[in-house]
Amino acid sequence: MAEQLLDQIRDVFEGQIDFEGQKLAEFLVNVALMLVGAIAFFAGYLLQDIKLAVYLGLGGTVLVFVLVVPPWPFFNRNPVKWLPVRGGISAPANLVVDDKVLG
């Protein structure tokens, strides 16, 4: 019970995503952050307001963090399909792991 809970917590904390998701995340980070920087600069320059530029830049960056850091479902749409376990290799009989008998 405790192990299951710890496993779940670890999975949530690690937030693993699949390979396609990793590619997408990298693309999103690059494009979104550059866009935020450009918007912050031009809005600040046109309105002659440096504080606006700073707040736009920081706020936009926070949004990018929210978009990219958690393992959103759209990062996990292409799970790796492992080959099925082929016969021939089987666990030895009466293998004891953590006081439990497997096999």
Binding site: E14, V29, G37, V69
Partner: peptide, 21 residues
């Protein structure tokens, strides 16, 4: 970009570059 921690670090790293530019 495999785990949340790596994504956090990579995003922050690129943020510092954008801020400098």
């Amino acid at each position: 970009m495999y785990s949340s921690l790596v994504r956090l670090q990579n995003t922050f790293s690129f943020f510092t570059t954008v801020a400098f530019v």
